[in-house]
Structures are given as structure tokens and as C-alpha cells.
Design a protein around this nucleic acid. Structure first.
Ligand SMILES: [Zn+2]
Ligand SMILES: [Zn+2]
Ligand SMILES: [Zn+2]
Ligand SMILES: [Zn+2]
Lengths: 134, 134
DNA sequence: GACTTCTGTGAGAACGGTTGTCAAAACGAT
DNA sequence: ATCGTTTTGACAACCGTTCTCACAGAAGTC
């Protein structure tokens, strides 16, 4: 008999990556996550970290943004709805924000110039109060 | 006698890069610009293209954005004021847009969470009418 | 023009983040 | 335990970008 393809097996590595994301309160790069895993004594290959992060992004369980220098950053995303981020560029602490005003503005601007299949990228970077206190 | 340092010499390569940017109506990557130069018979080293583009960005004469795949795209920027872009993801055609509503939203959101030294990235991507007509 | 000085150039190497390869390991259903 | 399939990981390959440094060539001076 052909079994149902269990297209997501539970492995030690997958659980470890997921656990790191749970303990993280801001965005982190794949390599930073890999380092944190090593620190915990979890031996996980770098390729595996990349693969699992990508899978989580595809499953909409993780948000992905790109830092100024081009590095990709990941963060667990609980919210199921469309939102944006206010990120501390020093410690990575992040607040999820959203606003219908912006969404309407983006759509209006696109419609005004007859663009279709519209997407947008909106990220706000700053220094959080704790980091500014130094 | 020590002359005044003319911190920007006029070279064939610099003029060639600038000319390409003038003829371009959308964003293009450094390598695309390098290819266009070769096509015109202008021999300019890739490093030189990167250097001159960076110099133009520093001089606020060129806008720089990052494509989804991380590649950096450049485009001549006439406007001296803060603005954002509505970019066709297919042909690169670009409209410069701005709106005080968004600017105020970004500031309000940051202030609400006590973030300082705030910057933001807002880009709208879509398919322009000519590209959608295919 | 000739001479000098200092910036700009370019071929190639190096870099850094990310993705691909593929044999071995591990999961999970039976 | 066995088997078919997924997952892993060491390592190489990739790709855009930056660095290196000997040399070319602007521009100022006489
Ligand atoms: Zn902070
Ligand atoms: Zn939005
Ligand atoms: Zn188009
Ligand atoms: Zn703005």
C-alpha cells in the first residue's frame, strides 16, 4: 500500500532550528542562527539551516527581510496577516506594525500609473530606546 | 605650490557610465550597465563601473535599490527630494512617487515605540501596462 | 609641449552569503 | 527489522561585489 506522503518529517535539526527561532526576539541571519545552534551544542549543517529556514518562509511561519548589506534575516512570525516591521538596527528587536493607510496608498499609487500585480516592501529601521540609552 | 585637489576628474569611463544612465529609463544592475557599455564598444572595467556608480550614489545623483534576489539596481535620479519608486518588475520602467501620508505614518509608528534615528524603505513593485498587455 | 603629481583604471584575486551535489543517515510506515 | 523516501552535511560551486596594486592618464605648472 502506498502511504500518504508525509511531506514534513520531524528531525532533530528541524526542531533545533525552530527552537532557536522561538527563543529569538528579533531578526537574525542564517549564519547567526547556525552559530547559536553550535553554542547550544546542536550540530546542524549550514545547508540544513538554510533549507529549513526557507521551508519555514514558504510555510509563512517565518518572516524574511533583507538587511542594508544584502544579508537575509529571519524571524518567527506568529501573525497570519499582512504586516510590516519596525526593526532596531542595533539589536534586531522588532515590532510588527500595520496600517490600512499605507496599504491604500500603495494601491492607489499603483492604480494611478496603471500597474497591476502590485506588491510592496515597507520596512522601518531605527534605534530602539534601550539601544539609544547607551 | 600645492594645487586645490580636483576631487572629481573627467574620464572617458566616467562619462560613458553617466551616458548609459541618461539613456536608461529604469533601474539596471551594475553588470547590465557594464554589458550595455560593451555593446556600445566602450571598454570599461567592471570594477570601474561599480566605483563610479557608488560615487554617483554618494553624490545623490543616482538612486539605488535592491531587487528581490539581492542584486543592487541603479537609476539616474533627477529629483533632489526624498521619494520612493513604483517599479515594473518586468521591464524596470520606474515612476518616482512620494506622499506625505506615508512619511508621517513611518514617523508616527517609530515614535509610538520610542525608536529614534528612523529611516525607511518603501518600494512598490508591479507590472506596467505595456508589459501587462502581453 | 614637457614635467610632475595625484586620481582613476583594470585584470585578476579575494570575499561573503547562498545554493548545489550526492552519498550516507535518519525517519516512519509496514 | 525492513524498505522506500526524505533529510542531512561536508564540500564545491556560484555570483555579485570589493580589494589589490601596478600602470594609465587628467590637470596644473612652467
Ligand atoms: Zn535595540
Ligand atoms: Zn503592506
Ligand atoms: Zn514593464
Ligand atoms: Zn519616504
Amino acid at each position: 500500500m502506498v502511504e500518504v506522503p508525509a511531506q514534513q518529517r520531524s528531525t532533530r535539526q528541524r526542531r533545533a532550528v525552530s527552537a532557536i527561532l522561538d527563543d529569538l526576539d528579533g531578526f537574525a541571519s542564517a549564519q547567526q542562527i547556525h552559530d547559536k545552534l553550535s553554542h547550544r551544542g546542536e550540530k546542524v549543517g549550514l545547508s540544513t539551516v538554510y533549507r529549513n529556514l526557507q521551508a519555514l518562509v514558504d510555510a509563512a511561519q517565518v518572516d524574511m527581510i533583507r538587511a542594508d548589506d544584502g544579508e537575509v534575516l529571519y524571524r518567527r512570525c506568529n501573525a497570519g496577516h499582512h504586516h510590516h516591521h519596525l526593526v532596531c538596527r542595533s539589536c534586531g528587536r522588532t515590532v510588527e506594525v500595520s496600517g490600512s493607510a499605507i496599504e491604500r496608498w500603495a494601491e492607489a499609487v499603483a492604480a494611478e500609473h496603471a500597474f497591476v500585480e502590485v506588491e510592496h516592501t515597507i520596512e522601518v529601521f531605527g534605534t530602539c530606546s534601550s539601544c539609544a540609552a547607551r
